[in-house]
Simulated assay, not measured.
Amino acid sequence: MATPNYGYEKRQKELAKKKKKEEKLREKSQRKLSPSSEGLAPGDSETDVASLEHDAPTVPDLPTKNG
């Protein structure tokens, strides 16, 4: 009787897991880019991708103990 190839089985599980993760990311990005079903047009400021990209808040430099 042949012995099981555990390395092959593990690799197949890893590939399936990777594929599933990529599909989830693809679906998530599709949902981000597509307009919502609330009736908002793609040009609305609420769904416009450019309006969603905000600059990071700036924090003033705090003085250090050394001066």
Rank of each mutant, 00 (worst) to 15 (best):
M1Y: 06
M1W: 14
A2Y: 14
A2E: 11
A2L: 12
T3K: 15
T3V: 04
T3D: 15
T3N: 02
T3W: 08
P4N: 09
P4V: 07
N5A: 10
N5Y: 05
N5F: 08
Y6R: 12
G7I: 02
G7C: 07
E9S: 11
E9C: 02
E9N: 15
R11N: 04
R11K: 13
Q12G: 15
Q12N: 11
Q12D: 14
K13L: 12
E14V: 07
L15G: 08
L15H: 12
L15F: 11
A16E: 13
A16P: 04
K17L: 10
K17G: 02
K18M: 06
K18A: 11
K19L: 10
K19W: 14
K19F: 11
K19Q: 14
K20E: 15
K20A: 14
K21P: 00
K21A: 03
K21T: 13
K21R: 11
E22C: 06
E23V: 05
E23I: 00
K24T: 05
K24C: 02
K24A: 07
L25Y: 06
L25R: 10
L25Q: 13
L25G: 11
L25W: 04
R26G: 01
R26Y: 02
R26N: 01
R26M: 07
R26Q: 09
R26P: 03
E27P: 02
E27V: 03
S29R: 01
S29W: 00
Q30W: 06
Q30D: 00
Q30H: 10
R31Q: 11
R31C: 03
R31Y: 04
K32P: 02
K32E: 04
K32Q: 09
L33G: 04
L33P: 00
L33S: 10
S34L: 10
S34E: 04
P35E: 00
P35L: 00
S36P: 03
S36T: 02
S36I: 05
S36A: 03
S37N: 02
S37K: 01
E38M: 03
E38I: 00
E38S: 05
E38R: 04
G39A: 08
L40T: 02
A41W: 04
P42Q: 03
G43M: 12
G43I: 10
G43D: 11
G43S: 15
G43V: 06
D44V: 06
D44G: 12
D44M: 01
D44I: 05
D44T: 12
S45L: 05
S45V: 15
S45H: 11
T47V: 05
T47H: 03
T47I: 04
T47P: 00
T47E: 03
T47R: 00
V49W: 01
V49Q: 14
V49S: 10
V49G: 13
A50Q: 12
A50F: 04
A50P: 01
S51Y: 04
S51G: 14
L52I: 04
L52R: 08
E53Y: 14
E53F: 10
E53G: 07
H54N: 06
H54W: 03
D55C: 11
D55E: 13
A56C: 10
A56R: 07
A56S: 07
P57H: 08
P57Q: 05
V59S: 09
V59W: 06
V59C: 06
V59A: 05
P60E: 05
P60W: 06
D61W: 09
D61H: 11
L62A: 12
P63Q: 13
P63C: 12
P63N: 10
T64D: 14
K65P: 06
N66L: 09
N66H: 12
G67W: 09
G67N: 13
